[in-house]
Design a protein around this nucleic acid. Structure first.
Length: 896
RNA sequence: AGGCAUGUAGCUCAGGGGGAGAGCGCUACCCUGACACGGUAGAGGUCCCGGGUUCAAAUCCCGGCGUGCCUACCA
């Protein structure tokens, strides 16, 4: 694309925009309906059209994108199906707010005009979150983008509704539902959020109709008493020898209501007498049904007391509570008030306290559907990962209650049901009937309610693929490979998709469900606008770059633990991206004229560092593959971080510098420096190329940018093959040799650091070892050690005289002497050796305790015992040597 | 009220029956020709507490304590 050199620091902004546009233009996200490659498909959890990208989206979609990019590189035919959700209540609320600013409300506009306004809003702003997903690098097949209100998806919704109704799995009836007096609609049980509330328990006297005295009932909601139609006691409660049917007078209303007996009443709670308000409490409703009680609604849909509330009519339900209490007190009927903590339901869209309310609604009979959904998971046809969520899924599915699906709002899928205005016949059909099938009347009126948004979301895995038509997309990509989502919508969405998929596709919607954690703030609190602790992903992307952000999310995505995110952490991973950038910059400087096709790697001519890095590369490739196959994103990211920074940069690049600068000869005598350089370049090219590919699913932009500059690559890295890993380049010998060399270098560096040797000063070092092989290896890699440990000279010898004026380190295979003539501080050396010996002695104490235990010697596996003995031997030898050196240093110190 | 997690270095966390790990932070020294968004070295831990199983427990089991979350119709 441009010049072949890299800038000194990685600048994400421009690079990201350029490559995203390129990928889209080249159709690299496109999924093929009729490919022979193995299919891999994911449907996106559709964000609300009104939404703006938040951390949850960023996390969720980063993980999906990693999987999709990984599978594309494996050669799979990948479909990532994108789209948005019409979010009935949320969207209606947003557009109503816009109208309010114009001084309008939806009723002034009328239903049709209002819906047109919502569409207009969606055309204008609905694409915002899609654009934000693109900033994140999401490789969705955007040409297939769907919306739950699209014609095709709407047809799927109607089809499902009609079929479920025909099968008796959808019914309409009068029940207590959750009503939001602000949104003016029914809500499903799931859409109610319960919160503990510090309220009161009010004890109210209900006088007997005949005779003296009263029954005291306890309630948290005194205002509902206006609609009481009975007082219930437990027939076993000895305190209440009241015959069933005896009456009390309902205070304030002066209405006689019966005493009833019902075992539901808990004798241990309150007074053991329960006021019954069938119209405003689900339990009271059921008790009312059992006893044939009257049902009196006293709270209207707007949350105000209605005409049945007598003199309280017109008051808001909470004002009414105060007024009722005042009135009771005046009449001497309020016995006492106790503080009481109980949970109160709130609308999940607007936080208004919901009102249990008797209302005619549509319901899905879920039990038969749930049975299939339970079986599918029991049989392993769908796996839930991590497994911990399986139990939660079962618990919920087994205690499931019917699903209220009708909503009294305008924005959504209108229920395909028509009532004959003449004979009352109810017709459910795909299209509006022309005439009543019962009486032939043409006066058919459509149901005004719309469906719960989650009803259409439940169909998402197949409705987006063209169902109810039998499309090639469905044939190829259903069931999807995995669903990636947060546990917060396990019930709302995952469970319902399972039910609908099994019912209508006769197969599970996904093979795997990967449930990821929540993103929280640095203190572990849930991010929320009201708390003001949200971190805006787009701000993060602007500040640190998409790649750093994605890598952070992946690195922290450990299964079963929430992510605590702070900008500081993202900054840390920006350093990683920059490190990769600079390692690449360095490599590319040397690879500028390298022609990968002309130089094959000849293993026999490789130096040990080359063999070592290739071995490590194979190792990390396999780790990353396994990690991604198991949804252990953090393990993949962690392995790559470790490899790039601490193996590739810290060691390999440093080791090959002299070779690249042409100052070191090759492995064999026949190799000229330039031939050796060529071979090392071949390895460097290979390592960089594969490292970029391994990293690409995590950090797509920077890897594509470097890939583009890497000689010999063609086309996008998205099309390159994911490295195989495996055993082919594993090299146990090289790893052992490098371990020895690195240990030696670290030993010398440790002395330099601890003894305050000026960094620029080259020193002499000597290693004495009794092992001839060790001496050979060290001798052979003399130059590597000299360079990395900053030595003037490096010698290897059998054990012998201890040189004077030197600092000492003992390692597993010998002793290192660093000559510090004139600069040695014997006191410092004494301290250093003493510290070292203390460490060893601590280890030895543990080991000796173990070996002194006869049970251990007889019962532990022989291998373990031998290992401990060997370790002891090594420590003992090391201690002896160190003590010898310490004694010499002490003598020298005394003499000086 | 039940259920599920979780408690490891100053912070955030990995790991998990036989030698306590990482990143960030901290300390010292270094602008060495990829990188100061860097390098080298270093300090720092009763692996929450108490029992049990085991030759061996940070790891498995039980019981506490702390924290977080989910579900629930007890007014």
């Amino acid at each position: 694309m441009s010049s072949k050199t890299l800038k000194k620091g990685y600048e994400p902004g421009e690079v990201e925009r350029r490559w995203y546009a390129y990928w889209e233009a080249e159709g690299l996200f496109h999924a093929d309906d009729k490919s022979t490659a193995p299919p891999y498909s994911i449907v996106i959890p559709p964000p609300n059209v009104t939404g703006a990208l938040h951390m949850g989206h960023a996390h969720n979609n980063t993980l999906q994108d990693i999987l999709c990019r990984y599978h594309r590189m494996l050669g799979d035919n990948v479909l990532w199906m994108p789209g948005t959700d019409h979010a009935g209540i949320a969207t209606q609320n947003v557009v109503e707010k816009v109208l309010a600013e114009e001084g309008l409300d939806r009723h002034q506009l009328g239903r049709e005009a209002f819906i047109e306004r919502v569409w207009q809003w969606r055309r204008e702003y609905g694409g915002r979150i899609i654009e934000q997903l693109k900033r994140l690098g999401a490789s969705c097949d955007w040409k297939r983008e769907r919306f739950t209100m699209d014609e095709g998806l709407s047809r799927a919704v109607r089809t499902v509704f009609v079929r479920l109704y025909a099968e008796g799995l959808i019914y309409r009836g009068n029940y207590i539902i959750n009503w939001c007096p602000r949104c003016l609609t029914a809500l499903s049980d799931l859409e109610v959020e319960h919160e503990d509330h510090n309220g009161h328990l009010y004890y109210i006297r209900y006088p007997f109709e005949k005779g003296e005295g009263w029954v005291v009932v306890a309630t948290t909601r005194p205002e509902t008493m206006l609609g009481d139609t009975a007082v219930a006691v437990n027939p076993d409660d000895e305190r209440y020898q009241l015959s069933e049917g005896a009456k009390v007078v309902l205070p304030l209303m002066n209405r006689g209501i019966p005493i009833i007996h019902d075992r539901y009443v808990d004798t241990g709670f309150g007074t053991g007498a329960l006021k019954i308000t069938p119209a405003h409490d689900p339990n009271d409703f059921e008790i009312g049904q059992r006893h044939g009680l009257d049902v009196i609604k006293v709270i209207g849909d707007d949350g105000r007391m209605n005409e049945n509330a007598g003199r309280f009519q017109g008051l808001d339900r909470f004002e009414c509570r105060d007024e009722v209490l005042k009135a009771l007190e005046e009449e001497g009927l309020l016995e006492k008030v106790e503080p009481y903590q109980h949970s109160v339901g709130h609308c999940y869209r607007c936080r208004t306290t919901v009102e249990p309310n008797l209302s005619k609604q549509w319901f899905v009979k879920v039990e038969p559907l749930a049975e299939k959904a339970i079986a599918a998971v029991e049989q392993g046809r769908t796996r839930i990962i991590p497994d911990i969520w399986t139990k939660t899924y079962f618990d919920w599915m087994r205690n499931i209650k019917d699903w209220c699906i009708s909503r009294q709002i305008w924005w959504g899928h209108r229920i395909p049901a028509w009532t004959c205005q003449d004979c009352g016949e109810l017709i459910v059909d795909m299209e509006a009937p022309e005439a009543c099938t019962a009486c032939g009347s043409g006066a058919m009126k459509q149901e005004t309610d719309v469906l719960d948004t989650w009803f259409s979301s439940a169909l998402w895995p197949f409705s987006t693929m063209g169902w109810p038509d039998q499309t090639p997309t469905l044939t190829t990509f259903y069931p999807t490979s995995v669903l990636v989502t947060g546990f917060d919508i396990l019930f709302f969405w995952v469970a319902r998709m399972m039910m609908m998929g099994l019912q209508f596709m006769d197969d599970v919607p996904f093979r795997d469900v990967y449930i990821h954690a929540l993103v929280r703030d640095a203190e572990g609190k849930k991010m929320s606008k009201s708390k003001g602790n949200v971190i805006d992903p787009l701000r993060v992307i602007d500040k640190f770059g998409t790649d750093a952000f994605r890598f952070t999310l992946a690195a922290f995505a450990a299964q079963g633990r929430d992510i605590k995110l702070s900008e500081e952490r993202i900054e840390g991973y920006r350093h990683f991206v920059n490190k990769l950038w600079n390692a690449s910059r360095f490599s590319l400087m040397h690879l500028e004229t390298f022609e990968p096709n002309k130089t094959a790697i000849d293993v026999s001519r490789l130096c040990v560092a080359d063999r070592w890095i290739l071995s490590r590369l194979d190792h990390v490739a396999e780790t990353v593959r396994t990690a991604l196959d198991d949804y252990k994103f953090n393990e993949g990211a962690g392995a790559l971080y470790q490899f790039v920074w601490h193996e590739l940069c810290d060691w390999y690049l440093e080791i090959i510098k002299p070779v690249l600068y042409g100052s070191q000869a090759g492995q064999t005598a026949a190799d000229t420096p330039s031939a050796a350089r060529e071979m090392t370049l071949a390895v460097l090219w290979c390592v960089l190329s594969e490292t970029l590919r391994l990293l690409h699913p995590f950090i797509p932009f920077v890897t594509e940018e470097i890939w583009d500059k890497l000689p010999g690559t063609h086309g996008s890295i998205m099309r390159a093959h994911f490295p195989a890993g495996g055993q082919s380049r594993r090299d146990e010998e090289a790893e052992q040799i490098m371990a020895l060399v690195m240990e030696t270098i670290s030993g010398i560096r440790n002395i330099r650091g601890e003894m305050n040797v000026p960094p620029g000063l080259l020193v002499h070092a000597l290693v004495q070892s009794a092992d001839e092989k060790i001496r050979g290896v060290l001798q052979h890699h003399r130059e590597m050690i000299t360079n990395l440990a900053k030595l003037e000279t490096f010698e290897v010898a059998p054990p012998g005289e201890r040189p004077a004026s030197c600092a000492t380190a003992v390692f597993s295979q010998g002793t290192i002497y660093v000559f510090l003539e004139g600069i040695i501080d014997f006191q410092a050396e004494q301290d250093r050796l003493t510290k070292e010996i203390a460490k060893i002695e601590k280890e030895l104490r543990g080991i000796e305790k173990k070996l002194g235990n006869t049970s251990f010697l007889t019962k532990a596996p022989a291998q373990v015992v031998a290992g401990v003995k060997e370790k002891k031997q090594a420590f003992v030898e090391k201690r002896e040597k160190l003590e010898k050196h310490l004694n010499i240093v002490k003598e020298l110190l005394a003499a000086s």
